[in-house]
């Protein structure tokens, strides 16, 4: 994720002759971290696949609009996170009659193949899914992706202090959930 390789990728993407090559290189570099970021938020593999594709299609289409003011991975995370939020909004309308989106996600998590997984991991994910949307995103970016608050601030267009507060509350709620459901 260094800046030199970012510049190379962008120059490849912005050249029509090498656009496809640059796109494939960009995907190979960022598809895994982005997939897991999306998957942790939406839980379902199919939804995560759709959102990942949508994220990179947007990159393919609007690569010319990337000015290089931020690092490429913060730009990608921002697009992916916005796509996830869009997905939540779309589904929240659909889910009005059938309960909250968190219940649905938690349900899908229980149905998924977890026979080889530690039950503690499932419970931990359930605890994260109980969080409000913003706290969930901040916690995932900080805990799993190990991004700095400055990077998260760029992705979510928020202040570092607000993010620290969000992360603190999220951690406390998760801990409490795990104690309550031990």
């Amino acid at each position: 994720m260094n800046e030199a390789s970012d510049a190379d990728l962008i120059s490849l993407l912005n050249n029509p002759a090498s656009k496809d090559k640059g796109f494939l290189q960009l995907m190979d570099t960022y598809k895994k971290p982005l997939y897991w970021h999306i998957r942790r938020l939406v839980v379902s593999h199919h939804d995560a696949e759709d959102i990942l594709q949508e994220t990179f299609i947007n990159v393919y289409r609007f690569s010319g609009s990337f000015k290089g003011e931020s690092r490429i991975f913060t730009w990608l995370y921002r697009i992916a996170t916005n796509e996830c939020i869009k997905h939540f909004r779309k589904n929240s309308k659909w889910l009005k009659k059938s309960g909250s989106i968190t219940d649905r996600i938690t349900g899908e998590l229980s149905e998924s193949d977890t026979e080889n997984s530690d039950l503690m991991l499932v419970k931990f994910q359930q605890a994260i899914l109980q969080l409000p949307e913003k706290q969930r995103i901040v916690f995932n970016l900080r805990y799993y992706d190990e991004l700095s608050y400055a990077d998260i601030a760029q992705i979510l267009n928020s202040s570092v202090n607000t993010l620290k507060t969000n992360y603190h509350f999220a951690s406390e709620k998760i801990k409490q959930y795990l104690i309550d459901h031990a």
């Binding site: 997939y35 897991w36 998957r39 593999h45 193949d113 991991l121």
Partner: peptide, 14 residues
């Protein structure tokens, strides 16, 4: 995480 990915997913997605 407890999530699993179908085999060959990352090879084909690009």
């Amino acid at each position: 995480t407890p999530y699993q990915v179908p085999s060959g997913f990352f090879e084909q997605i690009s």
